Simulated assay, not measured.
Amino acid sequence: MKVQVITEFRDKFTGKLYQPGEVLVIEDEARVEDLANRELAKPVEEKKEPKGISLFEKEFEKKALVDALKGIGVQVTGNMGEKTLLDKVAELDEESTVKLKIALGIE
């Protein structure tokens, strides 16, 4: 877990002096909690990158979505952004949407 130093302190285990703004990686959750309780450091929320594109309440890799759209005759390229691909899906009629779901293995 990552923590950001908010008050200068010396690590009781290593003797190293940490300055405000430094980011540390600490595996021991009890240690993180101790530093936070003593207002020496605060946990840093790590942004989690989405694993894929959310569509039909599932996650799909971009390549799989591009291949499925190509498979049903939609003109797409692999370098299109997520928003553009989702716009292409939104433009599909009901019949094409069903075909896309089948191609993605949903139905």
Rank of each mutant, 00 (worst) to 15 (best):
P43C: 05
E95R: 15
V25L: 15
V25P: 01
L40S: 07
D67L: 14
D28V: 08
Y18L: 10
G15M: 12
E45C: 09
V44E: 11
N37S: 08
T84E: 15
K70N: 05
E22A: 04
V3D: 05
D67P: 03
F60Y: 06
P43T: 09
Q75V: 13
L92D: 06
D67C: 07
G78C: 00
F9C: 13
E91S: 05
L104E: 06
L24V: 12
S96I: 01
Y18T: 11
E22N: 09
E82N: 11
R10F: 00
T84S: 04
K62F: 02
E82F: 04
L24Q: 08
L65I: 02
Q19S: 08
P50T: 09
V89L: 10
D93G: 09
E29M: 13
F13D: 08
I72L: 09
F9N: 05
G52K: 12
G21Y: 10
E8L: 09
V89W: 04
E45R: 15
K83G: 01
V5Q: 14
E8M: 08
P50Y: 05
A64F: 03
Y18W: 08
K58F: 02
E33K: 15
V74L: 06
L86G: 00
S96M: 10
E27S: 11
P50C: 06
G78K: 12
E94F: 04
L40P: 01
E27V: 11
G15N: 09
